[in-house]
Amino acid sequence: MPNHVKRRDPAAAGSIPAVLKMFESEVRFYREIAPVVGVRVPACYQAEENADGTRLVLEDLSAWTPGAEPAVGAAAMRDLHDRWVGRAHLQWPWLRPLGAGEDLVADLFDRTWPELAARSDVSAPVREVGERLVGHVVDAERDIARAGDLTMAHGDASAQNLRTGPGGEVAFLDWEDVSAAPGVLDLAWWLVSSVQPERWSEAVDAYGTSQGLVEVMPSTMVQGYLTMADYPDGSEVAAAWNARLEAASALLAAGRL
């Protein structure tokens, strides 16, 4: 089977990928962390960075099943987080810290929201939370610090970036957003990006705790709104995003699961 080659041109100056050093972080992940990370990731055969951008030659897992069952994915995340709690940021000080790029994300949300709020497929609870976030995204980002101890977070733990092998093993792909953050941040994005609301409890039970979930949910919803904005009004994919954002709105309203 051929290898998977991932190339990235240099990020545009001032862009979110440039400010967060996303492409460079993934190269460093495969060079320094992947050999000891303790969870399944694609084997890396080359990891290069130069003036022309970055280049990774990775094990091709395209034959594996995309995504993971809600509980299985959550349990795999918990395994990652438990391995590195309290020490990932000390062993690799270059890991993205909390708050990195928060001003850029806040500006992007505030610019995107008026068009999103005018759509016909944004339900009332989802619109209400979005309105409250306008001008307060930085506050939401800073609330993450109250959610728990720092560990190694994947940063984009969605079904798109998980694969399930023939024997049920879960692999994590795409480490551009690897960071030092409370692990529950990965759980929140797993729920909002990838898990049907009626199955959220399965994922949370498998993760083992809901502590910190309310604290990270506003920031997670910001990413959900921005992703929903990429899909046409009334589309099936956008409707699914609204349903998950509505479940997150209900969680915030209750202050608990």
Rank of each mutant, 00 (worst) to 15 (best):
D82R: 13
A188V: 12
L226N: 07
V57D: 12
E32M: 02
V214G: 02
A140H: 10
R87A: 11
A118S: 12
A118K: 11
L226M: 14
W175C: 04
E69S: 11
G165Q: 05
A51Q: 15
V36I: 15
L245N: 08
T54Q: 00
N161E: 03
G135Q: 09
M217R: 03
N50Y: 04
M77I: 13
V72I: 14
L80I: 10
A145Q: 02
E141V: 06
T112Q: 12
V41C: 07
W241E: 09
G208L: 11
L98T: 02
Q160W: 10
G53M: 00
G38R: 04
A254D: 15
A157Y: 09
S123A: 04
D107M: 08
M1C: 06
S201Y: 07
V204G: 01
D60I: 01
P232I: 05
S249Y: 10
Q91G: 12
D177I: 00
Q46A: 15
S194G: 06
L108D: 14
Y207L: 12
E48H: 14
D79Q: 14
L108T: 10
P125D: 02
H154R: 05
A140G: 07
C44N: 05
A239F: 06
L162E: 02
P17F: 09
A47P: 04
R119F: 03
W175H: 08
A254R: 15
I16W: 10
F29M: 05
D60C: 06
R132H: 12
R55C: 15
R111K: 14
A238K: 13
A181P: 04
E236K: 09
L257T: 12
M1L: 09
